[in-house]
């Protein structure tokens, strides 16, 4: 997948964590997600539709999910309740919505976010399109942003 389709998601994630959550994050090299089941325990996903199709999944460990939503709201959370799941969903919504600004090849709409938790789940990614995983490191834990997007013909 071309960098021009990945960079908007990388930049939107950096902007969200650095500017809004005041959290220093370091991005690693984007790579193909070889095993789509290699996601963490809490994954927020959003679908992309319109002139192309795709999906974005933001994936955290249980502990990092609690910490990131605590940062977002200023409330300390001890378990994965509805508010934490809602917060994680909102984060992927912001990443996808913000990334649209730089995806100039298509006019797309984003779905409502959903959140999956657990250790053994499978996401129905778009068929025939590689999934690119972008790793991020932060003081509250590592996480990934995973993107699958059909390229313009």
């Amino acid at each position: 997948m071309k960098a021009q389709y990945i960079n908007p998601f990388l930049n939107a994630t950096m902007g969200l964590f650095k500017d809004f959550l005041s959290l220093e994050v370091k991005s690693g090299k984007p790579a193909i997600l070889e095993n789509p089941k290699d996601l963490s325990e809490v994954s927020a996903l959003i679908g992309l539709a319109g002139e192309t199709t795709g999906a974005v999944v933001l994936s955290f460990s249980h502990d990092t999910a609690l910490k990131v939503v605590s940062l977002m709201t200023g409330t300390k959370y001890a378990f994965l309740g509805s508010e934490v799941l809602d917060g994680v969903g909102e984060l992927v919504n912001i990443i996808a919505g913000n990334a649209k600004k730089d995806l100039n090849d298509f006019r797309i709409s984003i779905s409502l976010p959903g959140v999956i938790t657990g250790n053994n789940y499978r996401i129905n990614w778009p068929k025939g399109v590689p999934i690119i995983t972008i790793p991020f490191q932060s003081s509250i834990g590592d996480f990934t942003v995973n993107v699958s997007l059909k390229e313009a013909v």
Binding site: N93, K100, R107, I110
Partner: peptide, 9 residues
């Protein structure tokens, strides 16, 4: 107040 940042939005 939205995440939708595209100009067309």
């Amino acid at each position: 107040i939205t995440s939708e940042a595209a100009k067309y939005n």
